[in-house]
Write a protein that binds this DNA or RNA. Structure first.
Length: 463
RNA sequence: GGCUGAGUGGCAGAGUGGUUAUGCAGCGGCCUGCAAAGCCGUGUACAGCGGUUCGAUUCCGCUCUCAGCCUCCA
């Protein structure tokens, strides 16, 4: 086995991965705040870390993959108020929707999905420790704050110093804080807001503390890998380190992984900018696997520019891959082929999925060449192709079913109607009525159906 | 102002101190009733300027441009 290297945001270099416990890996990823549908940026996190977890399994690791759900915060409360419903009704609904989107993207469920609201005891316990150790204090307004100056290494992850940051440039400084970068651990509830009892009165946790508490609770004081979007690097993950390491005295995370953003017109896709596409919307025109391929077609740390043109290319690319294994019986190799070697080499290099996929295409090309020359060889190569696709979560469907599946959730001509047209065309062909045969083919094409003749047989697919 | 990261052929996107990425699109050919799929062939790409080197797209420096973080955001 090659050696897996991962780019560690903490050191800004690729580092050989060393598990805390041999053969095992614990992964914690910051998941969704559930007050709305997932957008493509969320899809990227889900897919990227799904591949990370899958690849570790592929390498033979015992994986414990934890991805939390933030189900209490200001925005959730605001949304619930707008909708006139209890916040938990809202969050339960969007958790369900999130799982729905994940399934469409062939994202495997994490092993654990802890909820902030079910971790209140752990959160309170951790805040207590922080107060005892004088890393936290209660402000005049009743908020409990973390004192960033009490943590020497504050800024290590984001590579910034407290003095260099422009506090108050964009947001007014809260005078209850000792340092403008102090952040809330516990917040008293206003009338009518959801709250939990605590030593500091009825209230709710701040955002950062929940992840520290849940990660520690699920994976222990020290964890192998912690991931999330780049925008979480500061302040969220910086604050997590400060909280956890102050509370446990142990090095919190060995490897920090951050994925790049999805962009639209070279601008970050985000909720605050309002320029986002939900997974739901995109699924109206594209298959889930096409979105997944699109995400994996570039390296996870690079920006990913969203466009229909890109999605169309992903569609063509998947068509090529599925077409290659259509009508070939895949067989598993006993030895590791050159493809697999190169695939693993790419994946071992910081999960270079773009490069890994290029190996898959070379394999597909060879299958196409060998298909008629040496079917046995083609079968073995198809086995290789599927072996490579598995950790990427691609090519999991039956090729013909995939190729004939509708290209989105929008209404389309039914399979039955296509079949009857194809039958009509076969008759026309038998009659050598080429004009009619071509007309039927053109009509089907106008409805997104491509007809392919192979001798006396005719197959079709949707494009 | 501070701190990151990036600039590759028509598009997308890997990578490398000297040799073909890969996909899509294009062009020519084979196959086909015609197509489609597939196969074969086909592209003077590495922001600019200097430097190191026998040789740099790849290393170093500077310049320009873009993006991100410093507020909630995946």
């Amino acid at each position: 086995m090659g050696q897996l290297k991962i780019f560690n945001s903490l050191y800004r270099t690729k580092v050989l991965f060393q598990p805390i416990e041999t053969g095992k890996v614990g992964i914690y990823v910051c998941g969704m705040t559930v007050y709305d549908f997932c957008h493509i940026g969320h899809a990227r996190v889900m897919v990227v870390f799904d591949v990370v977890a899958r690849y570790f399994k592929y390498l033979g690791y015992e994986v414990k993959y934890v991805r939390n759900i933030t189900d209490i915060d200001d925005k959730i409360i605001a949304r619930a108020n707008e909708a006139g419903e209890d916040f938990s009704v809202l969050t339960t609904r969007f958790i369900k929707e999130m799982h729905h989107d994940e399934a469409d993207l062939n994202v495997l469920r994490p092993d654990l999905e802890p909820l902030a609201t079910e971790s209140i005891d752990d959160i309170i316990r951790m805040i207590n420790v922080l107060i005892e150790r004088e890393n936290a204090y209660v402000g005049d307004n009743g908020d409990v704050y973390y004192a960033v100056e009490s943590f020497e290494k504050y800024g290590q992850l984001s590579g910034r110093k407290l003095d260099d940051m422009n506090a108050g440039e964009r947001v007014e400084v809260d005078t209850n804080k000792r340092n403008p970068f102090d952040f809330v651990l516990w917040k008293p509830a206003k009338a009518g807001e959801p709250s939990w009892p605590s030593p500091w009165g009825e209230g709710r946790p701040g955002w950062h503390i929940e992840c520290s508490a849940m990660a520690t609770c699920c994976l222990g004081d020290q964890i192998d890998i912690h991931g999330g979007g780049m925008d979480l690097q500061f302040p969220h993950h910086e604050n997590e380190i400060a909280q956890s390491e102050a509370a446990t005295g142990v090095h919190y995370v060995n490897t920090w992984m951050h994925n790049g953003f999805v962009r639209i017109d070279d601008e970050k896709m985000s909720k605050s900018l309002g320029n986002f596409f939900t997974v739901r919307e995109v699924l109206k025109k594209y298959r889930g696997e096409e979105i997944r391929f699109f995400v994996l077609s570039s390296h996870y740390r690079s920006p990913l520019n969203y466009s229909e043109e890109q999605l169309n290319e992903s569609r063509s690319a998947l068509e090529r891959l599925y077409t290659a294994i259509r009508d070939v019986e895949p067989k598993r190799h006993h030895i590791k082929s050159d493809y697999i070697e190169r695939f693993e080499e790419a994946m071992n290099d910081d999960f270079n999925t773009a490069k890994a996929i290029s190996v898959m295409f070379e394999c597909a090309n060879d299958i196409n060449k060998q298909r008629s020359l040496d079917p046995e060889q083609a079968s073995l190569m198809a086995g290789d192709l599927l072996q490579m696709a598995e950790p990427l979560g691609l090519l999991a469907q039956d090729p013909n079913e995939y190729l004939q599946s509708t290209t989105g959730s929008d209404a389309a001509i039914s399979n039955d109607d296509i079949d009857s047209q194809v039958t009509k065309r076969l008759q026309a062909k038998a009659d050598k009525d080429w004009a009619l045969a071509d007309q039927i083919r053109d009509e089907l094409k106008a409805q997104g159906v491509i007809v392919e003749d192979k001798g006396k047989e005719t197959s079709w697919r949707r494009a």
